[in-house]
């Protein structure tokens, strides 16, 4: 059995801080919380239709992280790959943590933005474990 990974695909938005939360969250998950279980891919490359990337996404679980209700990551993945296993909106973590108002700065991001990203990353990492467990149960 080939080792399965979960692909984390943030929306790549650069207009507002909510896209930055998604990007920062993805890096925390891939570099720290679920380091050996996850990988990143560029959304623009997926949208472009790079064949080997699309195939890899079809064979693995995919989590989309979006920064606004337009859901570019989710919609673009559905169009290019035909599935998304789990979807998160960064605005939800902001609503759940009213005391941590994200700073508008995108480069660099502010301290509240970092804290929100850590909180969302913890949720995403938990979902990664759930998705990989589903994979194992299916393979058994």
């Amino acid at each position: 059995m080939s080792e399965k990974k979960v692909y984390i695909i943030p929306c790549s938005g650069i207009g507002k801080v909510f896209g930055s939360i998604g990007r920062k969250t993805a890096y925390i998950v891939v570099n720290e919380l679920a380091k050996d279980k996850t990988t990143l891919e560029c959304l623009p490359l997926i949208v472009k239709g790079k064949k080997e990337v699309i195939e890899a996404l079809k064979e693995n679980k995919v989590i989309a992280l979006d920064g606004c209700p337009l859901k570019c990551s989710y919609n673009d993945l559905m169009k290019a790959v035909g599935k998304v296993d789990t979807h998160f909106l960064t605005t939800d973590i902001v609503k759940e943590n009213r005391d941590l108002k994200p700073e508008p700065s995108i480069i660099p991001v502010g301290e509240n933005t970092k804290q929100l990203s850590i909180k969302l990353a913890e949720k995403v990492a938990a979902e990664v474990d759930k998705l990989l467990k589903e994979n194992m149960e299916r393979d058994d």
Binding site: C11, G13, N75, D76
Partner: peptide, 29 residues
């Protein structure tokens, strides 16, 4: 971001690449 925020704020605008590709989808894409 540097171009749009600092160097040429009055002459430029950022277009979001993934949103650009999601044209025609739900809402105004």
């Amino acid at each position: 971001r540097i171009v749009v925020e600092k160097l040429r704020p009055n002459n430029t605008i950022i277009l979001c690449q993934p949103l650009f590709m999601a044209g025609g989808l739900e809402r105004h894409g």
